[in-house]
């Protein structure tokens, strides 16, 4: 925080109980609290990172996953620089809901082109024994969704947590570079706007 670094807003999404808050706390303070509460409202933590020798402050936003609180959660999507879509490998439904989360995010963050937005997908609780979502299936989903990077994490034993969060920054840099190379990018906006204004979406 003390130095000069670029502020990145990162939104953590996923079903209730998949481990969003635990991942955030592991990443930011390297702690895992087995007695933690479920999230009510919105919380965020800042973390300074260095990616490719550039300094960033990641401002990580964590919300409650239940459908009921959607209207109080979605205003926080605006202005996000990247989004971590999270499920738990022992919770099939949470994996199936990834598409819903992505759609909700794109709609309320008002992002035209979902494929050039940096999503990273996290399969959490990799330490548990009764895994229900095969890694291949998750990877296939990512491939079909703009080739988002995929990480299997454990907030509990800290597997891959650091890498997953930092990869969000890398992904952002990557996609920004790509946009710089393609100056004609603006031409595609119209089309995407059309598809976005689909009224049924997430409404």
């Amino acid at each position: 925080m003390a130095g000069k670094s670029k502020l990145l807003k990162v939104v953590l999404l996923g079903d209730g109980g998949v481990g969003k808050s635990s991942l955030m706390n592991r990443f930011v303070s390297n702690k895992f609290d087995a007695q933690s509460f479920h999230t009510i409202g919105v919380e965020f933590l800042n973390k300074d990172v260095e990616v490719d020798s550039e300094a960033y402050t990641m401002q990580i936003w964590d919300t409650a996953g239940q459908e009921r609180f959607k209207s109080l959660r979605t205003p926080f999507y605006r202005g996000a620089d990247c989004c971590l879509l999270t499920y738990a490998v022992d919770d099939l439904q949470s994996f199936k809901n990834l598409a819903m989360w992505k759609k909700e995010f794109l709609f309320y963050a008002d992002i035209q082109d979902g494929n050039s937005f940096p999503f990273v997908v996290l399969g959490n609780k990799i330490d548990v024994e009764n895994r229900l979502v095969p890694e291949e299936e998750a990877k296939a989903w990512c491939a079909a969704n703009g080739g988002s990077p995929y990480f299997e994490t454990s907030a509990k034993d800290s597997t891959n947590v650091d890498r997953a969060f930092k990869s969000a920054v890398q992904r952002l840099r990557e996609l920004e570079d790509r946009m710089d190379i393609k100056p004609a990018h603006g031409n595609t906006v119209d089309l995407q706007k059309k598809s976005k204004s689909n009224p049924g979406c997430c409404g």
């Binding site: 209730g16 109980g17 509460f37 479920h38």
Partner: peptide
């Protein structure tokens, strides 16, 4: 059922009564 199950294990676990 799923929601309740997940939330109950995250309710006041630092209290002796639920520890």
């Amino acid at each position: 059922k799923g929601l309740i199950d997940k939330d109950v294990t995250r309710t006041d676990r630092t209290q002796k009564f639920y520890q």
